[in-house]
Design a protein around this nucleic acid. Structure first.
Length: 594
RNA sequence: GCGCCCAUAGCUCAGUGGAUAGAGCGCAGGCCUGCGGAGCCUGAGGUCGGAGGUUCGAAUCUUCCUGGGCGCGCCA
C-alpha cells in the first residue's frame, strides 16, 4: 500500500543552531582537557537546554555533572577545567560561568538571538527539519468503535489524540497512516441487523420486538424508515434477512461514525473491515501460521451442549477443525499470564484470533511500527497481543499501545453522571455541537492521555480569557490585526525575510525571551513525538501566548521609529507562525479574526 | 487475589535524573484615553499520598504500603 502522507519538503536551516553550537564547543573543550590530562574518561552524553531561572543564564549544560562519576572528581572542578578550554569562534556568548552544583551557564549575545530569529523567518517551516526522520512506516489505529452505536467522548478523545500524533509525526518527516478497524463481524453486528429488521417490520405494520440484548437507539429508527422507503415491502422478503439488515446497518453506522469524526476534523487513510478478513481466509491463515510455529494446542473435547452454536462461523470453516475442542495460543510462553483461546469448541474464531490476523495483516502491508490507541477497558489485552506478535516472530518494538483514559464531563462545576437523560451528552456529536471542534480538539489533547480527563464543558464553550484555546487563538488574531493596521499605515507589507541588521533593535528582555521560546519549539515538538504526548504542545502554546500578551501589554509594536517597528513586527510574525503551526498540529484553527 | 493507569497549591493540571517544583482557575490587592481589556502586574498558598532503596543529585528510577479508576470470558 502506498503512503498517503507525502513527505514534507522542508528547507534546511542555514547556520548552526545555538544549542548545537554550544554542544560542540563543550565537546571540543572536553577533548582539549583530555589532551592536557585534566580529564581522562570519554565525553559522556550531556544536555544543553534553556535555563529555567534567569539567574542561571539563558542556556545551561549539565556536562560537568554527567562527567563527574567517570572522572571521580567534583563537578565544579570539571566545569572550571572545561571553561578554561571553551572555544567561541563565533563569539556567540557574552558569559559562560559555573553555577550551583556545577552547571555551566551561558548568556548569549543579542546578535546570536537575532540570528536565531532570522533563521526562523527564513525557513519555510518552524520545525526546520532538524531531526532525522526514522524512515519507518508508521500506522496509527484508533477509535475502531463497534458499529452498533454512536461515537462517545472517549472515542472523541482517542480520535483527537491519534490525529494529533499523526500530524506531529508527519511534521517531523515521518510517514504515518491512520486506520479505523471496523468490527463488522460476529454476534454484536448480527444482533444489530436483527434489531433493524424488527424496526422495519414494526414500521411495515408487522409489530416485532427487538431481540434480547438488541439495540434500541433512535438512530436505528431513522435507518429503518429509510430502508422501508427505499425497498418497500420487498424489504421483508429477503431470504438472509438478518445478514441483509446487518450489512445495511453497518454501512449506515460507519457512515455515521465517519461524519462524526469529520466534524471533529479527523479523517482516516483507511477503514478496515474485519469481516473481509474472515471471508477471504486471512483469519484462518493467521491460525495456520501459529500452528506451524507450534504455539497452539487443543483442549479436551467439550460436552455436547455447545454444539447448537456450531456452523455459524462466517467464511470458510477452519482447516482441520476438531469438533468439540477449543484451540489455544500459548501466550504464557511470551509473557502473558494465561493462555488465550483462538478457536472456540464450536469452531468459531475468537475476537482475539481476528485481531492477531489484523495486526499480522498490517505488518504484511509493510508497516514497521503499529501504534494502537485503545480505551481503558482494553488494557488487559496488551499482554496477549504482544505475546501473539512475539509468537509470530515479530520484533517487540513493532507494536505499541496507548491507553486513552476515561473522560468525565463537568458542567456547572459538577461531574455529569452517565444516565438516560445525560447520556446524549456523552456522544461525540452532542459535545462537539456545543463546544465546537476547536475547543473539543484542544481540550482532549491538553492533558496527558493516560490520566483521567475532567472536561469542563462550560469552560470549553466560553469565549473568554479563561478558555485556553480562545486565549491562544486570540493571541494569533491580535497579531494578524497588528499587521492589518501596519499595512494600512505603511501602504505596503513587511518584507518576507529581514536582514540581520533589521533585527538589531530587539533588545528588551521580553523580546529576547520570546525568541528563546520560539527557538525551543522544535524541541517541544520532538519531545511530544517521542513520548506520543501532544499535550506538551498545548502547554507550550499557552506559555507562548502568555509571553506575547505580556509583551503586547507593555510595549507598542507600531512606533515612531520605523526600524524598531519593523524589528518588532518580524518578531511577532515569527510568534504568529509558530502559534499557527502548533495549533495546526493539534487540529485547531488559527483565525485572523475572532 | 492478580494485572494496568493515576496520586504535585483550595480546584484542574504541567514538570525528557538536575539549581529556589511551575501554569490556569479561585482568593487578596493594583493597572484601561493607545496596534483588539477576550488583557496586564503584585501577593498569599506545597513535608510532590506515605516509608525504604539506587544516585554527587529523585516529583521523576526502584521496592513496599495507602487511596482512587479500570481490567481479569470459549464476549467484542
Amino acid at each position: 500500500m502506498r503512503s498517503t502522507s507525502a513527505r514534507r519538503r522542508v528547507q534546511r536551516c542555514p547556520g548552526l543552531q545555538m544549542k548545537d553550537y554550544i554542544h560542540s564547543a563543550l565537546r571540543e573543550a572536553h577533548a582539549r582537557c583530555r589532551e592536557q590530562g585534566r580529564l581522562s574518561a570519554e565525553c559522556p552524553p550531556f544536555l544543553v537546554e534553556e535555563s529555567r531561572n534567569p539567574e542561571h543564564g539563558e542556556l545551561c549544560s549539565n556536562i560537568a555533572l554527567a562527567a563527574a562519576k567517570a572522572e571521580r572528581k567534583a563537578p565544579r572542578m570539571i566545569a572550571d577545567a572545561l571553561l578554561e578550554n571553551l572555544p567561541d569562534a563565533g563569539r556567540r556568548f557574552t558569559r559562560a560561568d559555573v553555577g550551583g552544583a556545577g552547571f555551566i551557564n551561558f548568556v548569549l549575545t543579542s546578535t546570536s538571538w537575532h540570528e536565531e530569529l532570522r533563521r526562523l523567518l527564513a525557513a519555510s517551516d518552524p520545525i526546520l527539519n532538524t531531526s532525522a526522520p526514522s524512515g519507518k512506516r508508521i500506522q496509527i489505529e484508533f477509535v475502531s468503535a463497534n458499529p452498533t452505536g454512536p461515537l462517545n467522548v472517549v472515542n472523541a478523545r482517542a480520535a483527537s489524540l491519534g490525529d494529533s500524533l499523526t500530524r506531529i509525526l508527519r511534521a517531523l518527516g515521518e510517514t504515518v497512516d491512520r486506520e479505523f478497524y471496523i468490527n463488522d463481524a460476529g454476534h454484536q453486528v448480527k444482533l444489530l441487523g436483527a434489531s433493524v429488521e424488527a424496526r422495519v417490520r414494526t414500521l411495515a405494520g408487522e409489530p416485532t420486538s427487538v431481540p434480547e440484548g438488541g439495540y434500541h437507539g433512535e438512530y436505528l429508527r431513522d435507518l429503518a424508515a429509510e430502508i422501508l422507503a427505499r425497498e418497500g415491502h420487498a424489504a421483508l422478503e429477503h431470504a438472509d434477512s438478518v445478514e441483509h439488515y446487518r450489512d445495511l446497518a453497518v454501512r449506515f453506522m460507519v457512515a455515521l461514525h465517519r461524519r462524526s469524526l469529520e466534524q471533529l476534523g479527523v479523517t482516516f487513510e483507511r477503514w478496515f473491515s474485519e469481516r473481509e478478513m474472515h471471508e477471504d481466509g486471512r483469519v484462518w491463515a493467521a491460525l495456520e501460521r501459529l500452528r506451524a510455529l507450534g504455539h497452539t494446542y487443543r483442549t479436551d473435547a467439550a460436552s455436547a451442549e455447545d454444539d447448537d452454536a456450531a456452523g455459524e462461523a462466517e467464511g470458510p470453516p477452519p482447516p482441520t477443525a476438531a469438533a468439540g475442542s477449543a484451540e489455544l495460543l500459548r501466550t504464557t510462553a511470551f509473557g502473558d499470564d494465561k493462555d488465550r483461546v483462538l478457536v472456540r469448541s464450536d469452531g468459531r474464531p475468537t475476537y482475539f484470533l481476528a485481531d492477531i490476523a489484523y495486526h499480522l495483516d498490517k505488518l504484511n502491508r509493510g508497516y514497521d511500527l503499529l501504534l494502537d490507541i485503545w480505551g481503558p477497558d482494553h488494557h488487559g489485552h496488551i499482554a496477549r497481543m504482544k505475546a501473539a506478535l512475539a509468537a509470530l516472530g515479530k520484533p517487540a518494538d513493532a507494536f505499541d499501545v496507548l491507553i486513552a483514559q476515561q473522560v468525565n464531563l463537568i458542567q456547572n462545576g459538577e461531574r455529569l453522571k452517565m444516565s438516560k437523560r445525560a447520556g446524549k451528552f456523552f456522544e461525540l456529536d452532542a459535545l462537539v455541537g456545543v463546544t465546537g471542534a476547536d475547543a473539543a480538539r484542544f481540550f482532549f489533547v491538553n492533558r496527558r492521555f493516560d490520566s483521567h480527563l475532567d472536561f469542563d464543558v462550560d469552560l470549553a464553550t466560553s469565549q473568554t480569557q479563561d478558555n485556553p484555546v480562545y486565549y491562544i487563538q486570540y493571541a494569533h488574531a491580535r497579531i494578524a490585526s497588528v499587521f492589518t493596521v501596519y499595512e494600512e499605515r505603511q501602504g505596503a507589507p513587511l518584507a518576507l525575510v529581514p536582514t540581520l541588521g533589521a533585527l538589531e533593535p530587539l533588545a528588551l528582555p521580553e523580546e529576547l525571551g520570546l525568541i528563546r521560546a520560539l527557538v525551543s519549539y522544535p524541541d517541544t515538538v520532538k519531545a511530544a513525538a517521542a513520548a506520543y504526548e501532544p499535550h506538551r504542545i498545548a502547554t507550550f502554546l499557552h506559555e507562548l501566548a502568555t509571553k506575547l500578551q505580556q509583551y503586547y501589554q507593555h510595549h507598542r509594536f507600531i512606533v515612531e521609529d520605523e526600524a524598531l517597528t519593523a524589528a518588532r513586527l518580524y518578531l511577532v510574525r515569527a510568534v504568529q507562525n509558530v502559534l499557527r503551526h502548533g495549533l495546526g498540529l493539534l487540529g485547531v484553527s488559527a483565525p485572523d479574526r475572532m
